[in-house]
Amino acid sequence: MSTTKIGGATLRALSDELAAAVDRASRSLVAIHARPRIAASGVYWRDGIVVAANHTLRKDADIALTMPDGSRGRANVVGRDGGTDLAVLRVESGSSAVVPEFAPDDDLRVGHLMLAVGRPGDEGVTASLGVVSAVGGAWRTWSGGDVDRFVRLDLSIYDGFSGGPLVDASGRVAGINCSALARGLPLAIPSSTVNRVVDALLTRGHVPRGFLGVAMQPVRLPPAMTQRLGLESADAVMITMVDGDSPAERAGLLLGDVVVAIEGNAINEPEDVTAYLGADRVGTTIQLTVVRGGAKMNVSVVVGERQRRKGGEG
């Protein structure tokens, strides 16, 4: 056989494989009717559990679903996590769907062919093809969610795609697509992060976040003081408010304290402090190094859990 003939056969085989991958993914894909105009997508992640993009859900109860077989279902929101823009729904009625096969997170590599699949209504599934354009380490979203890996996609996410699965060429689910976390650029939340959020939402209804009970602002210490205290950077964070009966007050932190380090790592801006307040820190003790009255001192704080706003998101 000539190269051209084998090539043609390879191209047709790839085309068939992609269509089969979409078909496989579609068995786990539901449409969620919880906002005006266009429906959004959701993945039948576990038995009776659908994962969706939080920003696509405008209501919490009695949400209509279009199941993979085209029939109607009903679901209620179990919990939302604004940080990762994920929400979990429990299917109350409707035909069953198939829990997808998941691709290991390590399989996500730059250049891999990926499909974004959506079900933006009752007219069947839609798909777009592209490659993984960047994979990075753990990151924090602008709304404070912890994501295990940064996954940028070079594919188009169309209306109703958010909440749909990122699918590899063999139809395995690698994550949930979302356009609301990076100014409309297509990103995926990897499966490991989705699982962590789903576990938290199912057991507690929200994803816990650490809490100190302070307001902060960036400050620059005078050069002489920076030098005298042996600090690497003059940039630090001043406490501008201490909540009553908060972890910070119990630890004895005062208005005007300047935080220069936590657990020995330099603090240069408020984000450096919030980076220490992930779910796993709740209930643990962290040591803050502060400058008070021109002298360095250490303060131990037991990290509390942030109270959820009434009716708001986690």
Binding site: T3, T4, I6, G7, G8, T10, L11, L14
Partner: peptide, 14 residues
């Protein structure tokens, strides 16, 4: 021959 090496000529032919 890899799939990648075959796809180019296939699309060219098409």
């Amino acid at each position: 021959l890899s799939a990648g090496a075959l796809l180019g000529p296939a699309i060219e032919e098409l």
